[in-house]
Nucleic acid binder design. Structure first.
Lengths: 174, 174
DNA sequence: TAAATTTGTAAGTGATTACTCACTTTCAAT
DNA sequence: ATTGAAAGTGAGTAATCACTTACAAATTTA
């Protein structure tokens, strides 16, 4: 990946996140990135290929966060870390997640391998803690993460007290 | 609203929900609805007007659900009803909500008057119950509703046990 | 340094887009 | 029965779309 390629990628991500995939023309991307439109197709084959490159690039970074949760052995700490995830979104990566959440509603690829592992580690944690229905508890965590991410990305909510409130529900204030 | 107008509206909603607003052409809507393309513009002025008509039509129905929550005087029952909302989505209205949730990521009009009232009634309920931070508790309910709706609309999750798990967290099993 | 490969451009391409317009049909009110 | 408005059509429009292609500059390889 050359600097110019990453430049195109980041410009496209920014526009996709704010105007949507369909709402962003390759001409607009080229103009904003300061390159010719043809170069986009030379590097990324087509518009869909450009989107895939963005998703891969972002997911590579995102899987690090999932790994950080999975590798925690103490179940309570693992759950706490999982809940904290959406609260620690780097504002620089805001656009990427906005794009990802918007795409969820247009594509079937909601599930992914790293996400399945993440979920399994949550089920395991609740099992260790002797919860009644670990599967449902894991789903609830996913629900909360989805909902929190939505609120954080779309509204300007006060994140810290909300995190506290949630952690209290799980007696995780340690 | 004539039958033909509602026919156009419903057809457009179906296509918008599955292919997205930008991904659906007015020509496709006309063909699917069995009318001429020009008629769409005669009735709804432009494509954006068609979308607005869909949103208004759906929101009129949706505000009934919000009202059902607000009118409950017992705070515990009110909260329980609020949490239950996304679990009782009529499958016939599935497409409408899919469209609404997809649109959230493209438009600033996330907030609305009935939604503000709904939130206020939740804050009030938590205040009555003596919760430490009613505002944050209300936000958490919104988060859960958002997250549950997302999971229900995009995945085929087992709704009932999840609802049970959530209600348990609030000691609302009555 | 010569050749070959990669990087980049600018001007196209046909297809599709939202939307218009001149026109016809339907139909209720006088 | 006549009129006038509303409902409905379908061919057309300019603009925009993703993408191609012929060519030039830059960079790497031999």
């Amino acid at each position: 990946m050359t600097d110019k390629q990453i430049n195109i990628l980041m410009t496209a991500m920014k526009l996709f996140a704010s105007l949507g995939f369909d709402g962003t023309s390759t001409k607009a991307i080229a103009k904003e990135a300061g390159v010719s439109e043809g170069l986009i197709f030379k590097h990324f084959k087509n518009k869909e290929g450009l989107l895939e490159a963005i998703i891969n690039y972002g997911m590579e970074k995102a899987s690090v966060y999932f790994a950080e949760v999975i590798l925690i052995s103490d179940p309570k700490k693992r759950i706490k870390k999982a809940i904290s995830l959406p609260f620690t979104i780097d504002p620089n990566e805001n656009q990427f997640w906005k794009l990802m959440y918007a795409l969820k509603w247009k594509r079937g690829e909601y599930e992914s391998a790293p996400l399945a592992l993440f979920r399994a580690s949550l089920v395991d944690a609740f099992e260790q803690l002797g919860y009644e229905s670990p599967e449902m508890e894991a789903t609830l965590i996913e629900v909360i993460i989805d909902g929190v991410a939505t609120q954080i990305l779309l509204k300007n909510i006060d994140a810290e007290p909300l995190l506290e409130t949630i952690l209290n529900k799980y007696s995780l204030k340690q």
